[in-house]
């Protein structure tokens, strides 16, 4: 507004930008059950990931128009649902096995960081940004169903028996997927449980993880989950909580966040990532962050899909 002479910065929203790579390549997710199978399991995993990682680099080179593609790699370790091993024991093992397969892990994230990082409740913030896809007939009079902790990709079947107290039985009707192509694939995702305290579900944390990797998370305009390295004299800690939520392992790595993400995961993750798509399709992401990504991409001559869910690509390799 050119007419404005008096300005108050507290009255104007602002969003800081984050550096962006072309592609954020996830080399894996580690849970206790994988870890318990020992180093062989990790070795096998990285061996299976390697050809797809090479393909992701090649695809990124095409995306960057033949120039040097900026690809950063990351790895997620669960310390939210179960805590196992320790950073001091696990991180060298992980890096060693990756290296043996010809892979380098640039950033290591803790799963709990997707719930809370550096004092910021990321998962709760993303939950506050869910805007449910409305069923036909939603005129604004009904409150959202966010209180239930479930999010679907369409319209649920009416609950059996709900109206029986009134002497009527509601006939069963099938659920339907919004925007289905002829037939529905209806998905209802549990976002959290409350037993006794709120526990975020794996797909919900995985959605926060995708948003972080796409550079779309902010806290009051400031970047969150910023990568931090260890000081040269600093040893890996004994406990996960003492480790930075997002650890930079390679000082010359491309930026953590990127225009697109690629995740190479075993096929058992397919339902989780389907749920992630359902969630990402209903997140009203920070508009300032979205705009920055779009402007930067346009400046670099790169195409970024408009919809957030379409920015995430996957490779599901066979196996558990």
């Amino acid at each position: 507004m050119t007419e404005q002479i008096f300005r108050e910065t507290t009255a104007e929203p602002r969003t800081q930008s984050v550096p962006l790579a072309h592609v954020s390549l996830e080399l894996g997710h580690l849970y206790m059950e994988d870890f318990e199978e020992g180093a062989d399991r990790l070795r096998e995993h990285f061996a299976r990931v390697k050809p797809w990682a090479d393909a992701a680099h090649a695809a990124a080179a095409v995306m960057s128009g033949g120039g040097r593609a900026r690809v950063s790699t990351c790895f997620l370790v669960d310390d939210y649902f179960t805590q196992f091993s320790s950073p001091r024991e696990l991180v060298p093992l992980l890096l060693g096995e990756a290296k043996a397969a010809g892979l380098e892990i640039d950033y290591l994230a803790r799963e709990s960081a997707c719930a809370q990082a550096d004092g910021v409740a990321l998962a709760a913030a993303v939950e506050g940004r869910l805007v449910e896809s409305p069923a036909e007939g939603s005129d604004g009079t009904r409150p959202g169903a966010r209180e239930t902790g479930w999010l679907s990709n369409g319209q649920r079947s009416p609950a059996a028996g709900t109206a029986e107290a009134m002497g009527r039985v509601v006939p069963w009707t099938p659920p339907s997927e919004a925007g289905a192509r002829r037939h529905s694939i209806f998905v209802d995702v549990e976002l959290w449980s409350a037993d006794p305290r709120r526990t975020w579900s794996c797909p919900f944390l995985a959605s926060v993880w995708q948003l972080a990797r796409l550079g779309l998370l902010r806290h009051r305009g400031n970047p969150v989950l910023e990568p931090r390295g260890l000081r040269p004299d600093q040893a890996l800690p004994e406990t996960w909580s003492a480790l930075p939520p997002l650890l930079r392992l390679n000082d010359s790595a491309a930026p953590f966040a990127a225009y697109r993400t690629t995740s190479v995961l075993p096929s058992r993750f397919l339902p989780i990532e389907h749920a992630v798509r359902v969630i990402l399709g209903q997140v009203d992401a920070d508009s300032g962050a979205l705009r920055q990504v779009a402007e930067r991409a346009a400046g670099e001559g790169i195409q970024v899909p408009a919809e957030i869910a379409d920015r995430a690509a996957y490779v599901f390799y066979p196996g558990p």
Partner: peptide, 25 residues
């Protein structure tokens, strides 16, 4: 995770972040 906007001139006016509600009607 969003700013509450605060303006003190010429009077105190505080504005919440926006929320969105989906409609299909």
């Amino acid at each position: 995770d969003e700013h509450v906007l605060l303006s003190e001139r010429p009077n105190l006016r505080v504005v919440s972040p926006h929320q969105l509600t989906g409609v299909d009607c």
